[in-house]
Design a protein around this nucleic acid. Structure first.
Lengths: 133, 133
DNA sequence: ATCATTGCAAACACTTTGCATACGC
DNA sequence: GCGTATGCAAAGTGTTTGCAATGAT
């Protein structure tokens, strides 16, 4: 997704495409690392020297409210973020720390939940990835 | 599971079945509420007036190391605990806060992960339950 | 000029740590 | 009496809040 598309997404969702918002959303769309707040902050503060962590928090909160970003709880107290896209699960390698997206059919899970109104779903798997075996 | 079984499980896993450990493990086995540290603390400190939250943390940490308890991350930063048993997912109702166990076949999820060494898996669904619709 | 965005500092909530005390065998 | 279990107080971590400063139109 190029810069113009990023701006378009923000505008479509009624957000002013400020420099920082474009940067944060671009990072989420282009990197596949499901970064934490700290990782986003470290990455962008190289370029935006006055960036504050509060702004990263505020911006992510806004993105989540607008529905273009999703928070994922890979582990304990480490909250991570990714741009919304089709349904998939996550695998975290205990050794290298990499997070892999897992293609997945949500029907297999939701079929059991008749009568429940499903709003969100997360599948988190952990263990050792093929590279670290 | 009666009191004697609880003691047996603790002993089998090389833990001294102290009063507090038996109480905490019993609560996890018998209640199905997937309590937070606070809920465990509130519940048990009625009876054990000198109980400290540190002890609840220590005990849960021990149980997790020994593999008889599992931590689950239902939402954001609220860590919950349950006694280990067969694989299942969780549904949390946004309205009433109840957490339901979802029967589930793990094979359907792991089949995609050939080459990965799977150690743990969590399925978390949220929305509105039939009672709150 | 006005309103939205950004950012500092402080508050907050949750969890862990270090060490002292108490308990069980 | 010795080693483990418990618990207080303090430190650590991640996140939110209040408000002031800055920026865009």
């Amino acid at each position: 997704m190029n810069n113009e598309n990023i701006v378009t997404v923000l505008k479509e969702n009624k957000m002013r495409p400020s420099f920082i918002r474009v940067k944060i959303y671009t990072l989420l769309v282009e990197s596949r690392i499901h970064p934490t707040v700290d990782e986003i902050y470290e990455q962008l503060s190289k370029e935006i020297l006055t960036l504050s962590k509060t702004t990263v928090y505020n911006t992510l909160k806004l993105f989540i409210e607008k529905g273009i970003v999703k928070a994922i709880n890979i582990e304990g107290n480490e909250l991570r973020f990714e741009a919304q896209r089709g349904f998939h699960g996550h695998f975290k390698c205990r050794e290298c720390g990499n997070i892999y997206d897992i293609p997945m059919n949500e029907k297999e899970i939701t079929s059991v939940l008749e009568g429940f109104n499903i709003e969100d779903m997360q599948v988190l798997v952990s263990g050792i990835c093929p590279d670290c075996e």
